[in-house]
Design a protein around this nucleic acid. Structure first.
Lengths: 217, 217, 217, 217
DNA sequence: TATGAATGAGTCTTCATTCAT
DNA sequence: TATGAATGAAGACTCATTCAT
């Protein structure tokens, strides 16, 4: 019971309205990815963010709302700049596509946000709201973005004239697979040795896909 | 307890002792796939198997044990017959690959077993030994099988000489993606209209991939 | 830590499916009347009934359901026999009415069930379901019963030919008032001395009302 | 903090210090009547009074204190003027009684004060001192007033010579019933169609009661 | 005085698991 | 073996109250 408690000890109550939501979202992202949405207790999120349970609900009315905020903050927010980048892209469509895939990995896949896909896939059936939200907020705009790249390639006679609604999956599948691997099977020490090398993985996927998509000379 | 019951005739009240666990596993499989592990209530499992809750715990000490049994039991190896088929395949490697992908969907993806993949991916972190088991029983032999097909193509100068350890993912990714979609997002009514057509999906994927893998004339 | 624990000590777990609901309803009635619906904790109800919290929810899905059961058990159930009694009543309508009022008090008002009226009045706004249920289950049939008595009197030219929909309130008001008094203000020691005497109260009310309702000679 | 502000002109930022408690009480009254004590959130009260939650607790240490203040403040005595009126009443006792009942409804029942009765009845057990206060400030003088009317009728041989301590309830019961109905069950949309018409209600009650109280010709 | 962010005890409800029969 | 009534730990969310500013 030291009376000489250091003055630097943080006061139990700190007012930081501006920074709280961000801290909570950060904590939630980590926990959700570690343990899944359902298995993460709201009190834990609060604790990890250094606040009390009540404070969490001060900023997010429900756990689902918190999840939505996590998605919005970590993924949705990327699309505007991404769309812009793509629209002003000067190079060939092959380069564009390769660039898109690489950015996807660098900005999402390899970050913690890359774990969100697994989260959503795991919980979609039990939380239809979340599934709908993700569909609307991520899948739809993401698909659109990729389709535009393909369309550009078709318009310029770089890519074959395929059914683009299906063809996008050609790009989506490997990325989802990679993110899933990193956050699920790959995270288990079991698959010893066979550690996936993302850069290599993407390189080969892009190589094959471009080769498969391109118009033959 | 009539001792006079003739031993030759099937007793009316069939002796289920041996079949009980199987029935429970069957019921659990369906429910786990439908709703995931956490959201499946043990009472429901018992009910669907036609026994009482207490009986369930007579055979499986915990819900986790049940889960492990379910997955283990249902990762039956299709590989022996599949390997055989592939070894005796007479046609071109392109046909072979297309056939493999289609069979994969028909024999696994579109059946309940297709749901196992999602289950394992979702719960891998919580059940590392399940993950290891799946790796060993499914992923490793499956990958090997596909690699053999690719190798055959390379050997016959039908396919490009790629790093096959990576190239298999080219085939795996779309199939995993399709199975996941079917058992997760796709099961949610939200993705209105955009219902995925598996046959079409596979057709296009195979088209692009073959085109991308093949040696240019 | 006496190893000689008496054999008569009740086992912690007793199975009494038949009697449980009744015990829970009894406990709930007492608690609801003592402290109101909202202020009564479900755990308390369980405790007073000698079971665990979980057991309560085994029999009643929600606290509201429990309340409904309390009402059904203690009030609704009285109407059938009451109706019958009234239909086979032989005496004059004045006697009938006096009898009805007295029975009302004896069978409901002065029992614990008499506290339900106050309960419902207090909580109606916050639990519209309960209000609707009470209306349907108690007020409507009760009003009907009384109206029939009045109608009989009018038909026999014993009672004046009044608007019976309004005239019933003439009977309802004093009884509600009495029950409320007993369970609210009257329960507070404050109104010292002025203890209400129900029998006298009813006698005078009936006297005045009959006098007021009867056809003048 | 301009010291030059002329003392004669009303300062723009009115000094509310003195009026604050009143505003809070006003807001609380409305909410307590609307939703009851337990269901009224202190934040709502503050909001409706236009102050922050903290301020509320600056004036009232607890929600219970606020409740007491609300009830005390709103049991203003109408009795002096009422008594006067009655004492100078010139007409018959029947008219006097009818007038008293109607005034009661118009001046109390149909106003917010009519809701106080329900509040007190609902919370009497939790706030015994409120109950005592109400008894002393409202019930006792009110009863006295009514008794005087009846006494006048008895003295003039207009009314029967009944036990007036009991007979007053004859007048009180319907009014309490009406006020309660208005503020409880009647406020629930459930009692479809059967909307109570206060004027009609009072008219019939008075009719029957007078008829019942009057000396037969 | 006034604010409103922060707290945490409290409440209903769920469900894996136990155990008396 | 089989049953299903009983248990109680947990978990999302609420809200009166506090306190740093």
């Amino acid at each position: 019971m030291p009376t000489s408690a250091p003055e630097t000890s943080l006061p139990r109550r700190t007012r930081r309205k501006e920074t709280r939501p961000g801290e909570l979202i950060e904590a939630a992202l980590n926990l959700f990815i570690e343990k899944g949405f359902a298995a993460t207790k709201s009190e834990e999120v609060a604790q990890r963010a250094g606040v009390s349970k009540g404070t969490l609900f001060l900023y997010f009315a429900t756990k689902e709302d918190l999840f939505k905020a996590v998605v919005r903050e970590n993924i949705s927010s990327l699309f505007p700049s991404w769309n812009e980048e793509m629209e002003s892209f000067a190079g060939s469509c092959s380069d564009m596509l390769a660039y898109a895939m690489t950015s996807w990995w660098e900005r999402v896949g390899q970050t913690k946000a890359g774990g969100i896909a697994k989260l959503v896939i795991s919980e979609a059936q039990n939380f239809p709201d979340i599934a709908a939200f993700y569909q609307q907020e991520v899948i739809t705009p993401g698909t659109l973005l990729l389709k535009k790249i393909l369309q550009r390639g078709v318009d310029r006679h770089e890519f074959r004239d395929l059914d683009l609604d299906q063809a996008v999956f050609t790009l989506v599948a490997p990325m989802i697979f990679l993110m899933l691997w990193k956050n699920s099977m790959g995270a288990c020490a079991s698959s010893a040795g066979e550690v996936m090398n993302p850069a290599q993985f993407i390189a080969l996927q892009v190589d094959v896909l471009l080769n498969g998509l391109k118009v033959k000379a």
